[in-house]
C-alpha cells in the first residue's frame, strides 16, 4: 500500500528532489565547514558537521514514535466520546 511504485509520477519526482536536497545540503555543510567557525555559534555542537541534519531527522522520528506508541494509546477515544 505504501509501495512507492504505486505512487503517481509527480510524487516520485518530489521524493527524488527531496533526497537530492538532503544529500546536497549535507555535502555543503561539510564543504563549507570552515566558514562556520567565523560565525558566532554559541554552542559547541552547532559547529559539528551535520548536527542540524541529524537533529532534525532524529527529532521527527522520535516525535512520531512517541506520539504513535505512547500518547495515542493513552488518549485516543471514539469520535463520539463526548457526545
Amino acid at each position: 500500500m505504501s509501495d512507492a511504485s504505486h505512487r503517481p509520477k509527480a510524487a516520485k519526482i518530489v521524493i527524488k528532489l527531496l533526497f537530492a536536497a538532503c544529500v546536497t545540503g549535507f555535502l555543503i555543510d561539510f564543504l563549507f565547514l570552515s566558514s562556520r567557525f567565523d560565525k558566532h555559534a554559541v554552542f559547541e555542537w552547532e559547529n559539528w558537521p551535520g548536527f542540524y541534519a541529524v537533529f532534525g531527522f532524529v527529532a521527527c522520528v522520535a516525535l512520531v514514535l512517541v506520539a504513535k506508541y505512547v500518547l495515542r494509546p493513552l488518549v485516543m477515544r471514539d469520535e463520539d466520546y463526548y457526545d
Binding site: M1, S2, L18, G50, Y52, G56, C60, V64, M76, E79
Partner: peptide
C-alpha cells in the same frame, strides 16, 4: 538542514507505513 531532514523523516516514515494513519477519533 533541520527542515529538509525533518521532511526526509516524514517521507521515510510515511513510505515505511510507520507514520500513524489518521483515525477518526477524539484525543
Amino acid at each position: 538542514l533541520l527542515l529538509i531532514f525533518s521532511a526526509l523523516a516524514f517521507t521515510l516514515l510515511l513510505l515505511s507505513g510507520i507514520y500513524p494513519s489518521e483515525i477518526r477519533s477524539v484525543n
